[in-house]
């Protein structure tokens, strides 16, 4: 780039106007959504940082520590639900590649059900904790625990809502541009929840019982 800026050009007369220039709408959409997911990742960065700071013993303020209430096997069950749901969504994507509407709907339905199982397990877990007085107001540690796990849970619930919407759009609108890029974006969203769950499972649940 030693040459001066204004003369750096290719082949001189490569043309001045680009007739019939189009952009790829699907990949623009998926990139945009991916960028949004990265900013979502920073939300989790903030929450993990919070959890890390607030997980010393004095942050429990004399209240329950993770030892007292985390059941590793139950959390493992939740992991199973999340991973299998992601696998089911993968099935929907494979069917999408083949243009197989029934397969997509089946995959979406199964992913939805397994996601709902996860949400159900989490609701059950938290209502049990609340019933024995382990609540976010008890201590800084518990506040951080609930905030982190529930933010993931809320993401999962939102994903279910999105899946339900996509179920109808695939069923009634077929594979239009818009439906296809939404399926691609939902894929990113849903798989992202699995990645976050790996971190939550390892550094909150498993680390907690140590």
């Amino acid at each position: 780039m030693g040459v001066s800026a204004t003369t750096a050009s290719d082949s001189g007369k490569a043309g001045l106007w680009a007739q019939h220039h189009h952009h790829d709408a699907i990949s623009t959409r998926t990139l945009g959504f991916w960028l949004y997911m990265l900013s979502d990742a920073m939300i989790f960065a903030g929450l993990f940082a919070t959890y890390a700071v607030l997980s010393h013993h004095y942050n429990a303020a004399g209240g329950p520590t993770p030892h007292d209430f985390i059941h590793p096997l139950y959390a493992y069950g939740e992991t199973l639900a999340v991973f299998t749901s992601v696998l089911a969504y993968g099935g929907a994507m494979v069917a999408l590649r083949r243009g197989h509407k029934g397969g997509v709907l089946a995959g979406l339905g199964l992913a939805f059900l397994l996601g709902a199982v996860f949400i159900g397990m989490e609701v059950n877990e938290f209502s049990h904790l609340l019933s024995i007085g382990i609540s976010p107001e008890r201590s800084g540690y518990l506040s951080a625990f609930f905030a982190l796990v529930m933010t993931h849970g809320i993401h999962m619930a939102f994903g279910l809502l999105w899946m339900a919407t996509m179920f109808f759009q695939v069923a009634f609108q077929g594979f239009t541009d818009k439906v296809v890029y939404r399926m691609l974006n939902l894929k990113v969203f849903w798989h992202f929840q699995a990645v976050i769950w790996v971190l939550v499972f390892s550094f909150v649940y498993m680390r907690g019982v140590l």
Binding site: H23, S27, L87, G90, V94, D177, Y181
Partner: peptide, 24 residues
């Protein structure tokens, strides 16, 4: 906004999906 590919299912981002990858 239009794009060069007629059938969205032919889009490279759909084609890239890989069933074996999911299983692994």
């Amino acid at each position: 906004m239009g794009h060069g590919i007629e059938n969205p299912l032919e889009h490279p981002e759909v084609r890239v999906v890989n069933g074996r990858g999911y299983l692994v």
